[in-house]
Design a protein around this nucleic acid. Structure first.
Lengths: 255, 255
DNA sequence: CCAGCCTCTTCCGCTCAGTGGAAGCTTGTG
DNA sequence: CACAAGCTTCCACTGAGCGGAAGAGGCTGG
């Protein structure tokens, strides 16, 4: 017989989203079969959905048949708040900081238990640091992450400090020590890391807050050597962070 | 009776996409009713789809009930080729150009009959020019657009020069004159505009091509006064454009 | 305090859009 | 030329999706 044994309880919408979910930072080009596999759907089903997505412009298909995310989805993504508001406001300030320091500059918000890198500026010469826009790194091992965590709700802190991942030999994983460091971050108004996320990378970061609001983002800088004067960059960051905060609408929050 | 008069021939997938399509540059925050109206769907239907999208993280709902594009969609959009490859490669060069000129720098690709602005750098002090990342402007009225058009297939040129929109009093709309100008752009290797898109904005642009490939993007600069030495910026742009081209994978194409 | 209006949420039985196994097709490989 | 792997098309069964309607909540003006 033809017919089928339709898996129950799965909406079409969720299938569409599963197709989109098949793509991620390290899988941005997929074949139909890969999409089917990664989204957990029969080939025929994936085929139908993918075709429709392509027709709409959400996916594009290269000559070799490989699918990638299309412009239409890029357009839509561009409208996300994290992207639009924050990036637009912060961008000139990132440039300022970059121009005066010549170092890699990062802008991040908290996304659950990760620091989500919304924007960054890297010198062409600078060794490529891990982060790129859209990357998510652990909160406890990055300077921007520590800033965000230091101003996060208690349950987030608790969750983040429960069995923190050891990324490099220098990563701090003792909850007690991290707790003390977060208090220090709040007191001092800036956070630091020394090769805790990437060997050969040292960084500082400061919080960004809109007028009359809490900390919504963090601005950080990464250098490739244990410069003793790293702290001297803090005032530069603070001026920029204050500028960004001032230009954000009062009460602005990511999400 | 309950039941209904389901509109036939409309797939669920397309309904989901219609919901996403309800959002655009000037409508990035919508209420449920607005989404329903703009996507042409009954409220109950929109409600269901929106709820599912929100559950997935594609949409977020603010406290006041207004919906916006969520992080999940931002993530996915980030994976688009235009965004990823081109932006990543070009970003440091844009910074170089910006640093030496202090002017607004633009990176654009052709999207149908429009120049799609993939990235830009603006000085905080500079008067805000129209373009922002994600913006689409007519090909015939912008410098980057002219570059892209000058290297576009014949049918695109024909379509673009059929009744070109007059944007400002300075916009060139005579097909003949535009045709001649495109030839000139090809010959000279750069394009210019003088208040053709935005009053008070002059600009130049050059093509970007990967090794052994055609023109895939354009790098431009916008200044706020009719500087006589605008052409002197062309070499700067060319160095950067060459650098970008060289770092693009051979045969790279947007889309 | 209520009427009027708006937007959002929930309900429910009918029905056709969606389903996926299978067959056919294309392309690459040994 | 057989075989495999990936892609496309086909088709009849059926439950997921549909949307009108009613209910809930909120705001405004009389």
């Amino acid at each position: 017989m033809a017919g089928n044994a339709r898996e129950p309880g799965v909406s079409v919408a969720s299938r569409v989203l599963a197709v989109l979910g098949a793509f991620d930072a390290s899988h941005d080009r997929l074949t139909l079969s890969e999409i089917a596999r990664r989204s957990g759907q029969p080939l025929a089903t994936a085929h139908r959905l993918v075709a429709e997505l392509e027709r709409w412009g959400g996916l594009t298909r290269a000559d070799d048949g490989v699918y990638g995310i299309g412009r239409r989805l890029w357009d839509v993504g561009t409208l996300a708040r994290v992207e639009r508001d924050l990036r637009d406001v912060a961008s000139p300030f990132l440039q300022d900081v970059h121009r005066t320091t010549r170092e890699t500059v990062h802008l991040a918000v908290r996304d659950g238990l990760h620091a989500l890198y919304v924007d960054r500026l890297v010198d062409r010469t600078t060794a490529q640091v891990l982060s790129r826009a859209g990357a998510r790194l652990p909160l406890h091992a990055t300077a921007v992450g520590k800033v965000l965590l230091a101003h996060a709700p208690g349950d987030v802190v608790r969750a983040a400090l429960t069995d923190p991942v050891r990324v490099t030999p220098h990563t701090i994983t003792e909850p007690g020590r991290l707790h003390r460091e977060l208090a220090e971050v709040r007191r001092r108004g800036s956070a630091r890391t020394a090769e805790e996320m990437t060997p050969g990378a040292w960084s500082v970061a400061v919080p960004i807050a809109p007028p009359g609001g809490g900390v919504v983002a963090s601005l950080g800088i990464v250098v490739a050597s244990p410069r003793r004067d790293l702290v001297r960059l803090v005032p530069v960051l603070q001026v920029a962070a204050n500028g960004i905060g001032r230009e954000l609408p009062p009460g602005w929050a990511p999400t």
